[in-house]
Design a protein around this nucleic acid. Structure first.
Lengths: 209, 209
DNA sequence: TCAAAACATGAGTAATCCTCACATTTGCAA
DNA sequence: TTGCAAATGTGAGGATTACTCATGTTTTGA
Protein backbone atom coordinates (compact mmCIF):
# COMPACT_ATOMS: atom_id res chain seq x y z
CA UNK A 1 0.00 0.00 0.00
CA UNK A 2 2.58 2.53 1.01
CA UNK A 3 5.27 2.47 -1.56
CA UNK A 4 8.06 4.40 0.10
CA UNK A 5 8.80 5.47 -3.43
CA UNK A 6 12.56 5.19 -3.31
CA UNK A 7 12.65 8.91 -3.76
CA UNK A 8 12.90 9.73 -0.11
CA UNK A 9 14.34 13.16 -0.58
CA UNK A 10 15.73 14.62 2.56
CA UNK A 11 15.11 13.94 6.20
CA UNK A 12 12.11 15.92 7.33
CA UNK A 13 12.55 18.07 10.40
CA UNK A 14 10.80 16.81 13.46
CA UNK A 15 11.35 18.86 16.56
CA UNK A 16 14.19 21.00 17.73
CA UNK A 17 15.16 20.69 21.38
CA UNK A 18 14.31 23.97 23.04
CA UNK A 19 14.91 23.17 26.66
CA UNK A 20 18.22 22.60 28.35
CA UNK A 21 17.34 19.06 29.33
CA UNK A 22 16.45 17.92 25.85
CA UNK A 23 19.48 19.61 24.35
CA UNK A 24 21.72 17.58 26.60
CA UNK A 25 19.87 14.41 25.78
CA UNK A 26 20.21 15.03 22.06
CA UNK A 27 23.93 15.44 22.63
CA UNK A 28 24.01 12.09 24.35
CA UNK A 29 22.12 10.50 21.47
CA UNK A 30 24.61 11.84 18.96
CA UNK A 31 27.52 10.71 21.08
CA UNK A 32 26.04 7.25 21.40
CA UNK A 33 25.45 7.03 17.67
CA UNK A 34 28.98 8.17 16.98
CA UNK A 35 30.40 5.56 19.32
CA UNK A 36 28.33 2.77 17.82
CA UNK A 37 29.29 3.73 14.31
CA UNK A 38 32.91 3.69 15.35
CA UNK A 39 32.52 0.22 16.78
CA UNK A 40 30.29 -1.45 14.24
CA UNK A 41 29.64 0.80 11.26
CA UNK A 42 26.53 2.79 10.51
CA UNK A 43 24.85 -0.12 8.86
CA UNK A 44 25.00 -2.28 11.95
CA UNK A 45 24.04 0.58 14.23
CA UNK A 46 20.67 -0.21 15.80
CA UNK A 47 18.31 2.51 16.88
CA UNK A 48 17.42 0.59 20.01
CA UNK A 49 21.05 0.35 20.94
CA UNK A 50 21.61 4.05 20.38
CA UNK A 51 18.72 4.82 22.70
CA UNK A 52 19.91 2.40 25.34
CA UNK A 53 23.47 3.68 25.31
CA UNK A 54 22.30 7.28 25.46
CA UNK A 55 20.10 6.38 28.41
CA UNK A 56 16.88 7.45 26.74
CA UNK A 57 13.88 5.62 25.42
CA UNK A 58 13.46 4.72 21.79
CA UNK A 59 10.56 7.15 21.65
CA UNK A 60 12.73 10.07 22.71
CA UNK A 61 15.18 9.24 19.98
CA UNK A 62 12.45 9.49 17.39
CA UNK A 63 11.23 12.69 18.96
CA UNK A 64 14.26 14.52 17.62
CA UNK A 65 15.36 12.39 14.70
CA UNK A 66 12.68 11.41 12.20
CA UNK A 67 14.57 8.33 11.17
CA UNK A 68 17.86 6.51 11.32
CA UNK A 69 19.44 8.45 8.49
CA UNK A 70 18.71 11.70 10.25
CA UNK A 71 21.18 10.88 13.00
CA UNK A 72 23.87 10.06 10.51
CA UNK A 73 23.04 13.21 8.61
CA UNK A 74 23.39 15.25 11.79
CA UNK A 75 26.83 13.81 12.46
CA UNK A 76 27.87 14.39 8.88
CA UNK A 77 26.79 18.01 9.04
CA UNK A 78 29.04 18.62 12.00
CA UNK A 79 32.07 17.34 10.21
CA UNK A 80 31.37 19.31 7.07
CA UNK A 81 30.86 22.53 8.99
CA UNK A 82 34.12 21.97 10.80
CA UNK A 83 36.15 21.16 7.73
CA UNK A 84 34.59 23.96 5.74
CA UNK A 85 35.99 26.51 8.14
CA UNK A 86 39.39 24.85 8.00
CA UNK A 87 39.46 24.88 4.21
CA UNK A 88 38.31 28.43 3.92
CA UNK A 89 41.04 29.57 6.26
CA UNK A 90 43.74 27.62 4.48
CA UNK A 91 42.91 29.05 1.06
CA UNK A 92 41.94 32.58 1.99
CA UNK A 93 45.39 34.14 1.87
CA UNK A 94 46.88 32.31 -1.07
CA UNK A 95 48.41 34.89 -3.37
CA UNK A 96 50.73 33.09 -5.74
CA UNK A 97 51.38 29.72 -7.32
CA UNK A 98 53.80 28.62 -4.65
CA UNK A 99 51.31 29.52 -1.94
CA UNK A 100 48.62 27.49 -3.64
CA UNK A 101 50.94 24.55 -3.94
CA UNK A 102 51.70 24.58 -0.25
CA UNK A 103 48.16 25.24 0.92
CA UNK A 104 46.68 22.58 -1.31
CA UNK A 105 49.22 20.01 -0.28
CA UNK A 106 48.56 20.69 3.38
CA UNK A 107 44.84 20.48 2.85
CA UNK A 108 45.06 17.08 1.24
CA UNK A 109 47.27 15.83 4.05
CA UNK A 110 44.83 17.08 6.64
CA UNK A 111 41.92 15.49 4.87
CA UNK A 112 43.74 12.19 4.50
CA UNK A 113 44.77 12.25 8.12
CA UNK A 114 41.25 12.99 9.21
CA UNK A 115 39.90 9.99 7.36
CA UNK A 116 42.61 7.75 8.71
CA UNK A 117 41.94 8.86 12.25
CA UNK A 118 38.18 9.25 12.33
CA UNK A 119 36.27 6.01 11.85
CA UNK A 120 32.91 7.73 12.01
CA UNK A 121 33.74 10.03 9.16
CA UNK A 122 35.16 7.19 7.15
CA UNK A 123 32.05 5.13 7.65
CA UNK A 124 29.57 7.86 6.96
CA UNK A 125 31.21 9.07 3.80
CA UNK A 126 31.76 5.63 2.47
CA UNK A 127 28.03 5.07 2.61
CA UNK A 128 27.51 8.38 0.96
CA UNK A 129 27.11 7.10 -2.55
CA UNK A 130 24.20 4.93 -1.65
CA UNK A 131 22.17 7.55 0.13
CA UNK A 132 20.58 10.18 -2.06
CA UNK A 133 20.26 12.77 0.68
CA UNK A 134 23.80 12.34 1.97
CA UNK A 135 25.09 12.38 -1.57
CA UNK A 136 23.42 15.74 -2.07
CA UNK A 137 24.95 17.06 1.12
CA UNK A 138 28.36 15.92 -0.02
CA UNK A 139 27.95 17.47 -3.45
CA UNK A 140 26.82 20.77 -2.00
CA UNK A 141 29.72 20.69 0.40
CA UNK A 142 32.11 19.88 -2.39
CA UNK A 143 30.81 22.76 -4.49
CA UNK A 144 31.21 25.14 -1.60
CA UNK A 145 34.78 24.03 -1.07
CA UNK A 146 35.50 24.22 -4.77
CA UNK A 147 34.37 27.84 -4.64
CA UNK A 148 37.28 28.68 -2.39
CA UNK A 149 39.56 27.15 -4.98
CA UNK A 150 37.83 29.07 -7.74
CA UNK A 151 38.44 32.29 -5.88
CA UNK A 152 42.14 31.49 -5.67
CA UNK A 153 42.34 30.52 -9.32
CA UNK A 154 40.63 33.70 -10.41
CA UNK A 155 43.23 35.66 -8.53
CA UNK A 156 46.08 33.73 -10.12
CA UNK A 157 44.65 33.70 -13.64
CA UNK A 158 42.43 36.75 -14.11
CA UNK A 159 41.87 36.20 -17.82
CA UNK A 160 40.62 32.62 -17.68
CA UNK A 161 37.11 31.45 -18.51
CA UNK A 162 35.10 31.32 -15.24
CA UNK A 163 33.11 28.27 -16.28
CA UNK A 164 36.28 26.35 -17.03
CA UNK A 165 37.71 27.32 -13.68
CA UNK A 166 34.57 26.17 -11.90
CA UNK A 167 34.70 22.86 -13.69
CA UNK A 168 38.36 22.34 -12.95
CA UNK A 169 38.02 23.21 -9.30
CA UNK A 170 34.96 21.04 -8.76
CA UNK A 171 36.54 18.11 -10.54
CA UNK A 172 39.82 18.42 -8.69
CA UNK A 173 38.02 18.59 -5.41
CA UNK A 174 35.86 15.56 -6.05
CA UNK A 175 38.85 13.63 -7.33
CA UNK A 176 40.57 14.43 -4.08
CA UNK A 177 37.76 13.01 -2.04
CA UNK A 178 37.71 9.92 -4.22
CA UNK A 179 41.48 9.57 -3.95
CA UNK A 180 41.40 9.75 -0.18
CA UNK A 181 38.58 7.23 0.02
CA UNK A 182 40.55 4.96 -2.26
CA UNK A 183 43.70 5.45 -0.24
CA UNK A 184 42.12 4.41 3.03
CA UNK A 185 40.68 1.27 1.53
CA UNK A 186 44.05 -0.18 0.52
CA UNK A 187 47.29 -0.88 2.37
CA UNK A 188 48.70 2.13 4.12
CA UNK A 189 51.83 2.26 2.01
CA UNK A 190 49.97 2.12 -1.28
CA UNK A 191 47.51 4.65 0.07
CA UNK A 192 50.33 7.10 0.74
CA UNK A 193 51.63 6.64 -2.78
CA UNK A 194 48.18 7.21 -4.25
CA UNK A 195 47.63 10.38 -2.29
CA UNK A 196 51.04 11.71 -3.34
CA UNK A 197 50.27 10.90 -6.96
CA UNK A 198 46.93 12.65 -6.68
CA UNK A 199 48.54 15.77 -5.28
CA UNK A 200 50.96 15.87 -8.16
CA UNK A 201 48.22 15.38 -10.73
CA UNK A 202 45.89 17.93 -9.16
CA UNK A 203 48.53 20.60 -8.78
CA UNK A 204 49.63 20.20 -12.33
CA UNK A 205 46.05 20.84 -13.37
CA UNK A 206 45.60 23.78 -11.02
CA UNK A 207 48.85 25.54 -11.80
CA UNK A 208 49.18 25.09 -15.53
CA UNK A 209 46.77 25.90 -18.31
CA UNK B 1 23.06 -32.16 12.14
CA UNK B 2 23.81 -29.10 10.15
CA UNK B 3 27.27 -27.94 10.91
CA UNK B 4 28.82 -26.21 7.95
CA UNK B 5 30.89 -24.07 10.27
CA UNK B 6 32.57 -22.55 7.26
CA UNK B 7 33.71 -18.97 7.27
CA UNK B 8 30.86 -16.96 5.81
CA UNK B 9 32.77 -13.75 5.05
CA UNK B 10 31.57 -12.94 1.58
CA UNK B 11 28.61 -14.28 -0.31
CA UNK B 12 28.77 -17.99 0.25
CA UNK B 13 27.99 -20.21 -2.68
CA UNK B 14 24.76 -22.05 -2.26
CA UNK B 15 23.91 -24.23 -5.16
CA UNK B 16 24.70 -24.00 -8.82
CA UNK B 17 21.87 -24.82 -11.18
CA UNK B 18 22.81 -28.02 -12.93
CA UNK B 19 19.62 -28.85 -14.78
CA UNK B 20 18.22 -27.04 -17.77
CA UNK B 21 15.06 -26.11 -15.91
CA UNK B 22 16.80 -24.45 -13.01
CA UNK B 23 19.22 -22.63 -15.25
CA UNK B 24 16.33 -20.99 -17.03
CA UNK B 25 14.72 -20.08 -13.75
CA UNK B 26 17.89 -18.48 -12.48
CA UNK B 27 17.98 -16.41 -15.64
CA UNK B 28 14.45 -15.27 -14.94
CA UNK B 29 15.39 -14.34 -11.40
CA UNK B 30 18.28 -12.22 -12.59
CA UNK B 31 16.12 -10.57 -15.22
CA UNK B 32 13.47 -9.78 -12.63
CA UNK B 33 16.05 -8.34 -10.27
CA UNK B 34 17.54 -6.25 -13.03
CA UNK B 35 14.12 -4.87 -13.96
CA UNK B 36 13.24 -4.05 -10.38
CA UNK B 37 16.54 -2.30 -9.80
CA UNK B 38 15.94 -0.27 -12.92
CA UNK B 39 12.53 0.75 -11.69
CA UNK B 40 13.15 1.35 -8.02
CA UNK B 41 16.82 1.01 -7.15
CA UNK B 42 18.54 -1.90 -5.48
CA UNK B 43 17.70 -0.66 -2.04
CA UNK B 44 13.97 -0.78 -2.64
CA UNK B 45 14.17 -4.09 -4.44
CA UNK B 46 12.28 -6.68 -2.39
CA UNK B 47 13.19 -10.33 -2.53
CA UNK B 48 9.52 -11.30 -2.53
CA UNK B 49 8.90 -9.10 -5.49
CA UNK B 50 11.85 -10.55 -7.39
CA UNK B 51 10.49 -14.05 -6.83
CA UNK B 52 6.99 -13.08 -7.84
CA UNK B 53 8.07 -11.34 -11.00
CA UNK B 54 10.31 -14.24 -11.96
CA UNK B 55 7.41 -16.59 -11.41
CA UNK B 56 9.17 -18.64 -8.75
CA UNK B 57 8.74 -19.06 -5.05
CA UNK B 58 10.76 -17.18 -2.52
CA UNK B 59 12.33 -20.46 -1.49
CA UNK B 60 13.64 -21.11 -4.99
CA UNK B 61 15.25 -17.71 -5.03
CA UNK B 62 17.18 -18.52 -1.88
CA UNK B 63 18.08 -21.89 -3.32
CA UNK B 64 20.50 -20.21 -5.70
CA UNK B 65 21.27 -16.90 -4.05
CA UNK B 66 22.30 -17.00 -0.40
CA UNK B 67 21.11 -13.49 0.23
CA UNK B 68 19.98 -10.29 -1.37
CA UNK B 69 23.46 -9.01 -2.07
CA UNK B 70 24.30 -12.17 -3.97
CA UNK B 71 21.84 -11.29 -6.72
CA UNK B 72 23.28 -7.82 -7.04
CA UNK B 73 26.76 -9.29 -7.00
CA UNK B 74 25.82 -11.66 -9.81
CA UNK B 75 24.54 -8.80 -11.94
CA UNK B 76 27.62 -6.75 -11.21
CA UNK B 77 29.90 -9.60 -12.24
CA UNK B 78 28.25 -9.79 -15.63
CA UNK B 79 28.87 -6.15 -16.31
CA UNK B 80 32.47 -6.25 -15.19
CA UNK B 81 33.24 -9.29 -17.30
CA UNK B 82 31.71 -7.58 -20.30
CA UNK B 83 33.52 -4.30 -19.85
CA UNK B 84 36.82 -6.00 -19.06
CA UNK B 85 36.87 -7.61 -22.49
CA UNK B 86 36.04 -4.30 -24.11
CA UNK B 87 38.84 -2.48 -22.29
CA UNK B 88 41.40 -5.11 -22.99
CA UNK B 89 40.63 -4.98 -26.69
CA UNK B 90 40.74 -1.21 -26.83
CA UNK B 91 44.16 -0.97 -25.21
CA UNK B 92 45.84 -4.05 -26.63
CA UNK B 93 47.18 -2.50 -29.80
CA UNK B 94 48.17 0.92 -28.58
CA UNK B 95 51.69 1.60 -29.79
CA UNK B 96 52.31 5.33 -29.44
CA UNK B 97 51.18 8.39 -27.54
CA UNK B 98 48.63 9.40 -30.11
CA UNK B 99 47.14 5.91 -30.07
CA UNK B 100 46.84 6.03 -26.30
CA UNK B 101 45.20 9.40 -26.47
CA UNK B 102 42.56 8.14 -28.86
CA UNK B 103 41.96 4.80 -27.17
CA UNK B 104 41.68 6.33 -23.73
CA UNK B 105 39.32 9.01 -24.88
CA UNK B 106 37.07 6.46 -26.53
CA UNK B 107 37.12 4.29 -23.45
CA UNK B 108 35.98 7.11 -21.21
CA UNK B 109 33.20 7.98 -23.63
CA UNK B 110 32.03 4.39 -23.72
CA UNK B 111 32.06 4.13 -19.96
CA UNK B 112 30.20 7.40 -19.57
CA UNK B 113 27.64 6.36 -22.15
CA UNK B 114 27.17 3.03 -20.46
CA UNK B 115 26.41 4.65 -17.13
CA UNK B 116 24.05 7.13 -18.72
CA UNK B 117 22.17 4.39 -20.53
CA UNK B 118 22.16 1.58 -17.99
CA UNK B 119 20.21 2.32 -14.81
CA UNK B 120 21.08 -1.02 -13.28
CA UNK B 121 24.77 -0.42 -13.56
CA UNK B 122 24.42 3.07 -12.24
CA UNK B 123 22.51 1.88 -9.24
CA UNK B 124 24.72 -1.05 -8.40
CA UNK B 125 27.93 0.86 -8.59
CA UNK B 126 26.58 3.81 -6.70
CA UNK B 127 25.91 1.51 -3.78
CA UNK B 128 29.34 0.06 -4.15
CA UNK B 129 31.02 2.13 -1.49
CA UNK B 130 28.70 0.93 1.18
CA UNK B 131 29.07 -2.76 0.51
CA UNK B 132 32.39 -4.27 1.49
CA UNK B 133 32.14 -7.24 -0.84
CA UNK B 134 31.08 -5.19 -3.83
CA UNK B 135 33.77 -2.66 -3.05
CA UNK B 136 36.34 -5.42 -3.18
CA UNK B 137 34.97 -6.63 -6.50
CA UNK B 138 35.20 -3.12 -7.85
CA UNK B 139 38.73 -2.62 -6.61
CA UNK B 140 39.88 -5.92 -8.06
CA UNK B 141 38.22 -5.04 -11.33
CA UNK B 142 39.83 -1.63 -11.30
CA UNK B 143 43.25 -3.10 -10.66
CA UNK B 144 42.81 -5.53 -13.51
CA UNK B 145 41.84 -2.73 -15.85
CA UNK B 146 44.71 -0.58 -14.64
CA UNK B 147 47.02 -3.43 -15.57
CA UNK B 148 46.11 -2.97 -19.21
CA UNK B 149 47.08 0.64 -18.87
CA UNK B 150 50.32 -0.29 -17.16
CA UNK B 151 51.20 -2.55 -20.05
CA UNK B 152 50.71 0.32 -22.46
CA UNK B 153 52.72 2.73 -20.34
CA UNK B 154 55.59 0.31 -20.05
CA UNK B 155 55.70 0.12 -23.81
CA UNK B 156 55.68 3.90 -24.17
CA UNK B 157 58.14 4.61 -21.37
CA UNK B 158 60.44 1.61 -20.95
CA UNK B 159 62.71 3.28 -18.46
CA UNK B 160 60.11 4.34 -15.91
CA UNK B 161 59.73 2.98 -12.40
CA UNK B 162 57.17 0.14 -12.51
CA UNK B 163 55.72 0.95 -9.10
CA UNK B 164 55.15 4.55 -10.12
CA UNK B 165 53.44 3.41 -13.29
CA UNK B 166 51.19 1.06 -11.34
CA UNK B 167 50.25 3.83 -8.97
CA UNK B 168 49.55 6.28 -11.76
CA UNK B 169 47.46 3.83 -13.75
CA UNK B 170 45.41 2.71 -10.76
CA UNK B 171 44.81 6.27 -9.65
CA UNK B 172 43.86 7.46 -13.11
CA UNK B 173 41.49 4.58 -13.49
CA UNK B 174 39.76 5.11 -10.18
CA UNK B 175 39.56 8.83 -10.81
CA UNK B 176 37.83 8.01 -14.06
CA UNK B 177 35.22 5.93 -12.35
CA UNK B 178 34.69 8.65 -9.79
CA UNK B 179 34.47 11.29 -12.51
CA UNK B 180 31.84 9.37 -14.40
CA UNK B 181 29.81 8.76 -11.27
CA UNK B 182 30.04 12.44 -10.49
CA UNK B 183 29.07 13.37 -14.02
CA UNK B 184 25.89 11.33 -14.01
CA UNK B 185 24.76 12.82 -10.74
CA UNK B 186 24.71 16.40 -12.00
CA UNK B 187 23.06 18.13 -14.95
CA UNK B 188 23.91 16.57 -18.27
CA UNK B 189 25.70 19.65 -19.57
CA UNK B 190 27.90 20.00 -16.53
CA UNK B 191 28.51 16.26 -16.61
CA UNK B 192 29.84 16.52 -20.13
CA UNK B 193 32.17 19.32 -19.13
CA UNK B 194 33.45 17.34 -16.15
CA UNK B 195 34.15 14.26 -18.21
CA UNK B 196 36.00 16.34 -20.78
CA UNK B 197 38.05 17.98 -18.05
CA UNK B 198 38.85 14.60 -16.57
CA UNK B 199 40.06 13.28 -19.92
CA UNK B 200 42.35 16.23 -20.28
CA UNK B 201 43.74 15.86 -16.79
CA UNK B 202 44.21 12.10 -17.06
CA UNK B 203 45.89 12.24 -20.44
CA UNK B 204 48.28 14.89 -19.27
CA UNK B 205 49.26 12.57 -16.45
CA UNK B 206 49.54 9.52 -18.67
CA UNK B 207 51.49 11.12 -21.48
CA UNK B 208 53.93 13.32 -19.66
CA UNK B 209 56.37 12.56 -16.89
C1' DT C 1 12.70 -49.45 -12.36
C1' DC C 2 13.68 -46.91 -8.55
C1' DA C 3 16.46 -44.61 -5.17
C1' DA C 4 19.01 -40.60 -4.63
C1' DA C 5 19.93 -36.05 -5.86
C1' DA C 6 18.25 -31.85 -7.50
C1' DC C 7 14.66 -28.77 -7.39
C1' DA C 8 10.39 -26.31 -5.69
C1' DT C 9 7.19 -24.49 -2.24
C1' DG C 10 5.32 -20.95 1.05
C1' DA C 11 3.90 -20.50 5.79
C1' DG C 12 6.55 -19.29 9.59
C1' DT C 13 10.62 -16.98 12.32
C1' DA C 14 13.40 -13.32 13.78
C1' DA C 15 15.09 -8.90 13.52
C1' DT C 16 14.37 -4.18 13.18
C1' DC C 17 12.43 0.40 12.12
C1' DC C 18 9.14 3.37 13.62
C1' DT C 19 4.30 4.85 15.72
C1' DC C 20 1.19 6.22 19.10
C1' DA C 21 -1.58 6.75 23.12
C1' DC C 22 -0.56 8.13 27.36
C1' DA C 23 2.57 9.93 31.41
C1' DT C 24 5.67 13.40 33.18
C1' DT C 25 8.23 17.78 33.37
C1' DT C 26 8.95 22.58 32.35
C1' DG C 27 8.03 27.42 31.36
C1' DC C 28 5.31 31.16 32.45
C1' DA C 29 1.21 34.09 33.05
C1' DA C 30 -2.25 35.21 36.42
C1' DT D 1 1.95 30.03 44.49
C1' DT D 2 -1.09 27.90 41.23
C1' DG D 3 -2.69 26.19 36.88
C1' DC D 4 -2.20 24.88 32.45
C1' DA D 5 -0.40 24.44 27.84
C1' DA D 6 3.55 23.14 25.50
C1' DA D 7 7.51 20.44 25.53
C1' DT D 8 9.35 16.24 26.59
C1' DG D 9 9.55 11.18 27.86
C1' DT D 10 8.01 6.27 27.56
C1' DG D 11 7.90 1.47 25.75
C1' DA D 12 4.66 -1.96 24.15
C1' DG D 13 3.21 -3.11 19.78
C1' DG D 14 2.33 -2.55 14.49
C1' DA D 15 4.37 -3.30 10.13
C1' DT D 16 7.81 -4.72 7.02
C1' DT D 17 11.07 -7.79 5.25
C1' DA D 18 15.17 -10.83 4.80
C1' DC D 19 15.67 -15.45 5.33
C1' DT D 20 14.63 -20.73 7.05
C1' DC D 21 12.88 -25.25 6.94
C1' DA D 22 9.93 -29.18 6.77
C1' DT D 23 7.83 -31.18 3.18
C1' DG D 24 6.49 -32.28 -1.56
C1' DT D 25 7.76 -32.89 -6.72
C1' DT D 26 10.81 -33.70 -10.75
C1' DT D 27 14.99 -35.29 -12.90
C1' DT D 28 18.99 -38.17 -13.23
C1' DG D 29 21.63 -42.16 -13.72
C1' DA D 30 22.74 -46.84 -12.82
Amino acid sequence: MEGTPANEQIASPRRAPSQQRSRERVERMLAAASALITEQGSDAMRMGEVAERAGVSIGSLYQFFPDKRAIIWALAERYTAESQACISAALANVGDAEGLRRAFSDLVDIYYGLFLAEPVMRDIWSGTQADKALRQLELADSRANAEFLVAVLKRLRPGADPVALETTAFLVWQMGEAAVRLAISVERQEGDRLVAAYKCMALRELLSE
